[in-house]
Design a binder for these strands. Structure first.
Lengths: 339, 339
DNA sequence: CTGAAAGCGCTTACAG
DNA sequence: CTGAAAGCGCTTACAG
């Protein structure tokens, strides 16, 4: 191992400046309003700078009972579709002087508890962002009453009063309206797993608006994967009255769904219109570029951090819905209903 | 804010068990070999369990000068193409009882230093995984001599003696051989930025093997994005002698490149064969599924963690090349050279 | 076999 | 304006 320079401690700075460590601490942390003789302050600042002093986060954390760290519980590291959310959260946390530690909640039995123990119970974090909530997970309640605040982002935990979400219902409605405007009457939704609250809200909006026009969409839930999207699209296309417009829940499903459509020789958009939820760079580069709903994912992540830090600082919990409206990015996969 | 249960401390367990905290500490941490009367041990274990005691990681970290945390410096949170590497690192770290904190090294001037200060100099981590090395970054040397060990993964920092890499040269050779076997003589490489060591090694392998057959590939470097891939492919296709086989550096470029090919009405693979580096799920779902090189990314991440922890425990630095060979996943985008 | 003490690197009332 | 002391929650030699 290379010789590793021991980082400077308060003690080193104090000695170099010829003062007591408590004085150093005061000028380093003081917001300028501490009463220190200017020349003393100067000597300390110079010494600290020369020694490249940075307060040890662990020691400070122990003393202040604050870690400067937030936890982030993601549903999967395998499939980074939601990386804009993570990026939004990371960037804001970094700006606000917090670092982010990762944990994975795969949905398997003890994954979330394990993460909870390691991050919360061992006192590693000041707050927890949960991106992996599932409506069927009973353990989430205990998170809310634990020793650190938490916030559910994107996927809400109803009743928790700690949800930061987007206008998913509006996204569904927007897509339904787009289809109806194009004259479609046979709508379908290739949905995600309905245990995900986002998925449920999107579906609701889509179905509700379609019904106002007398069209009742077929809904097929499927796992958020290429394979599941592929199978579910085949299922949809075998329906007695084949839908002419399908709203697909995510990009992975959409890739599989597009393959299924191609296999059947069905033309897009002449015979079938497709919309993908969450606009992904890939959408624009497919052979038939996909019309997609763009959600304010980055903003969701950054707002979730703000709301969490609010609570870390003592505020009451609250639900927040990001105001920014979903945006429909119209590309070539949607067109007028076939006659 | 909800009433938050204060987590149990050593003190609480000691009181509940009627012993001194030092005794509790010993039985909790002892690997069984500590001499404690069985009934005392039992009382302590029961109390700890009932109080759900977990040692505070911060306090323990301060005492042991060890944090149980590793840092991960990624090139970008925007584009998670390398998520299998991150996942491999995360999973192995978690298994070995370390948590991972994220930092982003966007390549902008002080991004890496900033991350270094916050993670290393503030004493938050025991070791640093660097996935963002660039051959043109002079600051990397100082990382090597800092207070904590580091490892460069995927993108090497030549001369550091701390690189964990894959057989990128072999990947390039494998693709060249595939093209040559199919009878192609006019080869090209849509490369990534040559400041990335991985990119340089891949190119070398590709060019070197092609030359043995008397074919000297055209090499066009481009940023790893859809747009750059699109532009660079157009450039390649305007060459006086148009290549019949192109090796593309990553999936983002490939999506743009495929679009460019389509715009020119060139048929794949009849008129042009394409191979993409790094097999991505998307490759299999394009209209013309892409032949791709599958690298052992997950293994790279997990091995990098092992090598780093080796050094955290005091071992000498060393370079490691993952033995696992790249694998060519042949799909429909490659075929015999046109006559 | 168990307890009392020191100390990890900080911060912050409290003196002076 | 500055110093000395206590203490955050642990671990570990050192006594007994």
């Amino acid at each position: 191992m290379a010789d590793r320079a021991r980082p400077a401690r308060l003690d080193d700075v104090a000695r170099a400046a010829g003062v007591h460590i408590s004085t150093v601490s005061r000028v380093i942390n003081g917001r300028g309003e501490v009463s220190v003789r200017p020349e003393t302050r100067q000597r300390i600042l110079t010494a600290a700078h020369e020694l490249q002093y940075r307060p040890n986060a662990i020691a400070r954390g122990l003393r202040l009972a604050t870690t400067g760290t937030l936890g982030l519980l993601v549903p999967s590291l395998r499939n980074p579709v939601n990386s804009p959310i993570v990026r939004g959260a990371f960037n804001r946390a970094w700006e606000r002087n917090f670092v982010l530690v990762l944990a994975e909640d795969t949905g398997e039995s003890e994954a979330a508890e394990d993460a909870y123990e390691r991050l919360v119970e061992e006192g590693r974090i000041d707050g927890l962002l949960i991106q992996s909530a599932r409506l069927d997970n009973p353990h989430l309640d205990s998170f809310s009453s634990g020793p650190v605040p938490c916030v559910f982002m994107d996927r809400a935990h109803p009743g928790s009063g700690r949800n930061v979400t987007m206008r998913d219902g509006d996204a569904g409605r927007m897509v339904a309206k787009h289809f109806l405007d194009l004259g479609h009457r046979f709508l379908a939704h290739l949905a995600g797993p309905l245990e995900l609250d986002t998925v449920a809200r999107r579906r609701e909006g889509f179905v509700e608006l379609a019904r106002t026009a007398g069209a009742t969409p077929i809904v097929v839930p499927a796992v958020l994967s290429e394979e599941a999207g592929h199978a579910a699209m085949h299922e949809l296309l075998e329906q007695p009255t084949r839908p002419t417009a399908v709203f697909v829940a995510n990009i992975n499903q959409a890739l599989g769904a597009v393959a299924a459509v191609r296999e059947r020789g069905i033309r897009v958009p002449e015979e079938l219109s497709l919309v993908c939820h969450d606009d992904d760079p890939v959408c624009g580069f497919l052979d038939t570029p996909l019309t997609a709903v763009r959600m304010p994912l980055h903003e969701l992540g950054s707002t979730a951090v703000d709301v969490l830090l609010e609570q870390v600082e003592g505020a009451e919990r609250r639900n927040v819905v990001i105001e920014t409206e979903p945006e429909l990015v119209v590309r070539r996969s949607t067109g007028p209903a076939p006659q």
